[in-house]
């Protein structure tokens, strides 16, 4: 009986302590924002207004599109204007590939391709274009880019969280949609063998062509490039419907070795 009472007392004390803790957590929440508020009240951190002026919307890019790759290669053309150290990295990758080694192919192990490397792959994209937000869904890895047209700027300073696809804002200059993207993390290369730093900034200029649109990219990263790297991808309207794309390394036949070379995993059969 006494034992039971003690247990009850202990439970009551624990319950009270728990309530106190909740109360203090709520207070902390209100004053410092340390603990996340309920989702409905959550605001995206780092949203700040830009002073940039925008012309009127000149077109919309709604629909499914497929890159046409007239340059016929899985990278960006022309080749990047690289500083000597960056060129040495690329030369080594090209040398290994010429010898038959699959060097620096991170998507071969299901790593997210990131922006802009994802533009070098031939899969359809779906664009949902509203006045204040463009959403680009890539079938490849089912990756999504959000391009804000609502007059916001990029998150400033430490509010900018490095991500695989960066933070994009857009505005109109006459008949051109300009999109500015920063905040790409350094895990993916721009294209295999061309790593970048967190300074990477990419300005895209979208304009209509007679049967689609062109995305002209100017890449800025002074620590690897001798000058801005100007390149482009062209798109045509497609009847394709996007499909799921999930990549699991456990289904894969390759793993990356310590030098970043894809090597076959010993057992070819999975079952």
């Amino acid at each position: 009986m006494i034992t039971l009472r003690r247990t009850t007392l202990a439970a009551s004390v624990a319950a009270i302590a728990c309530c106190l803790q909740l109360t203090s957590a709520a207070a902390q929440n209100a004053t410092t924002g340390v603990i996340a508020p309920p989702a409905a009240q959550q605001k995206t951190p780092g949203v700040v207004k830009s002073n940039r002026k925008s012309d009127k919307q000149a077109f919309d890019l709604n629909g499914v599109w497929w890159v046409t790759q007239p340059e016929g290669a899985a990278g960006f053309k022309p080749d990047p204007p690289l500083k000597p150290e960056a060129q040495a990295v690329l030369d080594e990758v090209l040398r290994l590939r010429a010898e038959g080694f699959n060097a620096r192919d991170k998507t071969g192990t299901c790593a997210p391709p990131g922006f802009p490397l994802i533009l070098t792959r031939v899969y359809p994209i779906q664009i949902i274009h509203t006045p204040k937000l463009i959403t680009i869904i890539h079938e490849y890895y089912n990756a999504v880019r959000w391009i804000w047209l609502d007059g916001r700027d990029h998150p400033q300073g430490d509010d900018l969280i490095p991500t695989y696809y960066g933070h994009s804002i857009g505005w109109w200059e006459g008949n051109t949609l300009v999109v500015d993207t920063v905040g790409m993390n350094t895990a993916p290369d721009i294209q295999p063998g061309v790593p970048h730093t967190e300074q990477l900034r990419i300005v895209e200029r979208f304009s209509l062509t007679k049967d689609g649109f062109v995305d002209e990219l100017t890449m800025h990263d002074p620590s690897i490039l001798t000058k801005p790297w100007v390149t482009a991808k062209q798109y045509k309207k497609s009847d394709a419907e996007l499909q799921e794309f999930v990549c699991l390394q456990e289904d894969n036949h390759y793993a990356s070795d310590e030098k970043g070379i894809l090597r076959p995993i010993a057992t070819p059969s999975s079952k």
Partner: peptide, 13 residues
């Protein structure tokens, strides 16, 4: 024609 670009890794091997 589209071969290298469809792929997820190079076909160097």
């Amino acid at each position: 024609l589209a071969w290298p670009a469809f792929a997820h890794h190079s076909f160097a091997m």
